[in-house]
């Protein structure tokens, strides 16, 4: 995983709440067996509308998605995170994220930041007034800054450390091999096994 320290980029304001993962990447895209090539599927249905924010030239090249509450609800598809990253987003800002989506994003190095709704609205207004406005998301100092905005955010220390270092979870877990083996040896024999009976 790529490490995340700090990122500065333009805002893409997505004035919608409850953006579910079916909207982020529709199911028919889930037939692919790779982690890349999902950028054209991102918000596919909404992109057919010329007025949709991703279709406005002024917002092209934006890398920080600022969305309404309950972003990433619904299906657990990690493809939603890959689609956002394939398209070029580095961070998503919202007042509330669905749990599985948040977990998936942090595992892939897409920084998801929880901010109070008034700050989200302020960022929407800033970028709608001047689409060139840049925002900085700094994981080292845990702040989001933009003209007139300087907001601290919290992130679980462990998740932050993994992101900052770009660490791979599996290698970290495998350092606990002896603990896992010990746990396995003590499991009761009545527990189910999938071996054919």
């Amino acid at each position: 995983m790529e490490a995340f320290t700090t990122h500065t980029g333009r805002v893409v304001p997505l004035r919608r709440s409850n953006v579910d993962t079916d909207q982020i990447i529709p199911a028919h895209w889930l037939k692919k067996v790779t982690r890349d090539g999902f950028e054209d599927g991102l918000f596919e249905a909404w992109r057919r509308d010329p007025e949709f924010v991703l279709n406005k030239p002024a917002h092209h090249g934006g890398t920080v998605l600022v969305a309404g509450p309950d972003f990433g609800t619904g299906s657990s598809r990690e493809h939603a995170v890959w689609a956002l990253q394939n398209y070029g987003f580095k961070a998503v800002l919202s007042s509330r994220f669905a749990d599985i989506f948040r977990g998936n994003s942090l595992k892939n190095g897409l920084l998801t930041v929880v901010l109070p709704q008034p700050v989200i609205e302020r960022l929407w207004e800033l970028s709608e007034t001047d689409p060139a406005t840049e925002v900085t998301v700094d994981l080292v100092t845990r702040t989001v800054t933009a003209p007139g905005v300087a907001e601290e955010f919290t992130l679980d220390e462990n998740a932050r450390w993994r992101l900052l270092e770009g660490l791979d979870d599996i290698s970290l877990t495998l350092q606990n091999e002896s603990h896992i083996a010990e746990f396995e040896a003590a499991r009761p024999s009545f527990l189910p096994r999938t071996l054919r009976v």
Partner: peptide
């Protein structure tokens, strides 16, 4: 439910 990275994990 878990994501694909967790499936691998």
């Amino acid at each position: 439910g878990i994501g694909t990275s967790q499936v691998e994990h």
